[in-house]
């Protein structure tokens, strides 16, 4: 009976199901992805900002004269981890609530100054599990070398959102790889991720115009997750190309949704302008009429 009312209404449920059926293979690790998505939503970032001011690591280290000790705080302030409420203690341990130096740096509470480079991927993998699972058997993680590890490419304190330009950091790749390979790699990443970023930008713009974009965002997230889960940290070009090829089958459909939503925005604005025009003309005619009224 629920078909008759909107009590059971979920936005775009039908199309969502159809899409997830098509990309069922991508959603195997959806639980992890859900966590990732939660971290990225504005709601998550809004609630997180409060906690920052009470972190004693931040409040003490920010004012230290030694730049090696204070710069990490400034860098972290700009990072993607700050709005996600991932702070010092999540990698360095210790007690972020204590004002006493010894307590704050308590080894009993797993405080560690410099984490072991060979376990860095495990620290990051606590949240970024899929990436870790792909990275460990990849050429970069092979035989326990873990070179380069997570922070070599993504930075340690100023962790930024993943993007293609990370690959082009010359120090990190040039030592072992030829420029040609790097160019192929960058081009592939652009092919895989750039459309998704484009969809998201378009969706934000459309959303601010009042037209629902949940379906577009869900599809874009699915595609992005598929890329992150199956391509981003595999580091084998052939495997990655196959993933990107299959993603490019999905992109035209998302593009169609974007176009439909854009048309809806335009239709609404045209309709509104018709009213505005009518009101203004009507006001003008009334004004003229009023002036033409007899003087008494």
């Amino acid at each position: 009976m629920s078909e008759l009312t909107h009590a059971g209404y979920r936005p775009g449920a039908g199309a969502w199901n159809a899409l997830s059926a098509r990309t069922a293979e991508y959603t195997a690790r959806s639980a992890v992805i859900l966590l990732l998505l939660l971290v990225w939503t504005p709601a998550g970032s809004a609630t997180a900002q409060q906690a920052v001011t009470t972190n004693t690591c931040v409040s003490c280290h920010a004012d230290l004269d030694d730049e090696d000790m204070s710069l990490p705080v400034a860098e972290w302030q700009r990072s993607a981890h700050r709005p996600a409420d991932i702070a010092c203690q999540d990698c360095h341990g210790g007690n972020p609530a204590s004002m006493v130096e010894d307590e704050a740096h308590d080894v009993e509470r797993d405080f560690v100054g410099l984490p072991d480079p060979y376990v860095v991927h495990e620290l990051c993998g606590e949240c970024h599990q899929v990436q870790m699972e792909n990275y460990v058997p990849s050429p970069h993680g092979l035989e326990g070398d873990f070179w380069p590890n997570c922070v070599d490419c993504h930075e340690n304190h100023e962790v930024v959102f993943p993007r293609a330009s990370l690959i082009s950091i010359p120090d990190n790749c040039e030592d072992c790889h030829e420029q040609e390979i790097m160019d192929d790699f960058i081009a592939l990443t652009d092919r895989g991720l750039e459309p998704v970023n484009e969809f998201r930008r378009a969706a934000e713009e459309i959303r601010s115009a009042g037209v629902p974009v949940d379906l577009i965002l869900a599809q874009a997230s699915l595609a992005r997750d598929a890329y992150i889960q199956q391509a981003s940290h595999v580091f084998v070009l052939d495997k990655m190309t196959a993933v990107v090829d299959s993603l490019e089958q999905v992109y035209p459909r998302i593009q169609k949704e974007v176009n439909t939503a854009r048309t809806e925005v335009d239709t609404r604005r045209r309709f509104g302008w018709m009213f505005i025009g009518l009101f203004l003309v009507l006001a003008g005619v009334i004004w003229l009429y009023r002036r033409a009224l007899p003087e008494d």
Binding site: A209, G272, L280
Partner: peptide
């Protein structure tokens, strides 16, 4: 009526037009 009513009608129409503008943008 009609002098002052028309004045008011003009203001109402202009305000409504600005509300529609806000709604669509």
């Amino acid at each position: 009526y009609p002098q002052h009513v028309m004045k008011e009608a003009i203001v109402v129409l202009l305000v409504l037009a600005s509300m529609i503008f806000m709604i669509i943008y």
